[in-house]
Design a binder for these strands. Structure first.
Lengths: 227, 227
DNA sequence: CGAATAGTGTCTGTGAGACATTATCTT
DNA sequence: AAGATAATGTCTCACAGACACTATTCG
């Protein structure tokens, strides 16, 4: 029995932190269906070019947002007869995370694009609302026990800055002593030699960067940030 | 631009516990490619019939193993030009878990099928070895902080029996006091009224069942079984 | 010197694991 | 009664959070 034809795409949930809120990149669709509407960046898998769906997601990230070298992970696959008016479809969704500094440096195509706070989204085509909700849940969950939020923080950063990012993502305050202890155990940060940030009438803070080996993957912690 | 044709299938990693080991169901393929070889059960998505890939996985589970009502979750999606000799393919993989009792009761078609211990697998076609490795990693990971292993234990079961299942999956012993405390906190078990198992010259153990509401989903625990 | 934030030392409460004890069955 | 395993009580150690204190800058 030959396979029945269906539509296979990748969709990308690109998240960043702006104004203390998680924001998602939405692009104006330039073709049907839903031409002109805001939706997640995505596209067909190019079987002649891509070596995997992850490759397709990286290509979408590069072509539609001009970004590369980001943290990227497979989120989940969404499917069904009704989610795309063209017919039965499968979308492999990916989660990517970018910090404001990287966005300024290499994200020219989307710097002025449509970033929307994930907690106040308009109605979206396809099942993109559900895909984003899944992505946000994943990010909040992983923030409890991994270095993921560091990818949302422009490097170099101070520990208080990084803590503020964790707090923005988690939506609650974090004990600063525990936070420092945890970051020490995680052992995923390099202190910038001699690097300090003095931004006021107070003791300046040490600057850090993610260690090279964790730029594109996460460091997990044993027991988590909070009980 | 119309979509480029590709192959879309679902694959099912069905795990059970036999002889104290995680075992995976392999079936002899009845068609090309790899006809006659052992591989994961799977099949094309039937766009006329399935409402989602999960539906397709449930259908495969029913048609090829005669099983229903199991714990099932999406595992990940595997893709690329080389994993299937028919061409560029996408496989949405699902993880299902069954206990020996359910298998005896309704798993007639596969009771005598090919169950293989996940730690000593033969070479498998496609990328099924990698898919199984991902599934096992998921199960072991979730066993640290969820009720998943209870789906591997024929009901009704005693706490010592359930603990033995956790230990078999995790590959290490668990403190029995902590284990009981954790199961109490999880609050996912119902004591069978008056149910005891006396299997020797000693105090009989209380029998339990998974609470109805957790038969097809998991209960997660805060800090995990071990530090 | 005071204000402000960075960073550290130390206490305490909670929870996991170890050990000991009690409970309840068979032979 | 002896032996075996189930189930529970209690001690201890480790870790997360709270609080207090020191450090370093600017004005």
């Amino acid at each position: 029995m030959p396979p029945e034809p269906l539509i296979c795409t990748v969709d990308l949930v690109l998240l960043t932190l702006q104004a203390g809120q998680l924001q998602v990149l939405l692009l104006k669709r330039d073709r049907e269906p839903f031409a002109g509407a805001l939706a997640l960046p995505g596209g067909y898998v190019h079987t002649g070019e891509d070596q995997s769906c992850e490759d397709a997601a990286l290509r979408v990230l590069q072509d539609k947002a001009g970004l590369q070298g980001l943290y990227l992970e497979q989120l989940a696959t969404f499917s069904g007869p009704g989610r795309d008016p063209r017919g039965w479809s499968v979308s492999v969704a990916y989660l990517a995370v970018v910090d404001a500094g990287t966005l300024d440096a290499q994200g020219a195509p989307v710097r002025a694009a449509h970033w929307r706070p994930v907690d106040r989204l308009p109605a979206l085509p396809f099942d993109h609302g559900r895909i984003i909700a899944t992505a946000v849940e994943r990010v909040r969950g992983k923030s409890l026990y991994s270095s993921l939020p560091a990818h949302l923080c422009p490097a170099p950063f101070t520990l208080p800055e990084l803590q503020a990012v964790y707090e923005a993502v988690l939506g609650e305050t974090v004990n600063h002593v525990s936070f420092r202890r945890k970051m020490g155990e995680l052992d995923c940060l390099d202190a910038v030699p001699g690097g300090k940030r003095a931004d006021g009438a107070h003791r300046p803070a040490q600057l850090y960067r993610l260690k090279q080996e964790f730029r594109q993957r996460l460091r997990l912690v044993g027991r988590g940030l909070k009980a």
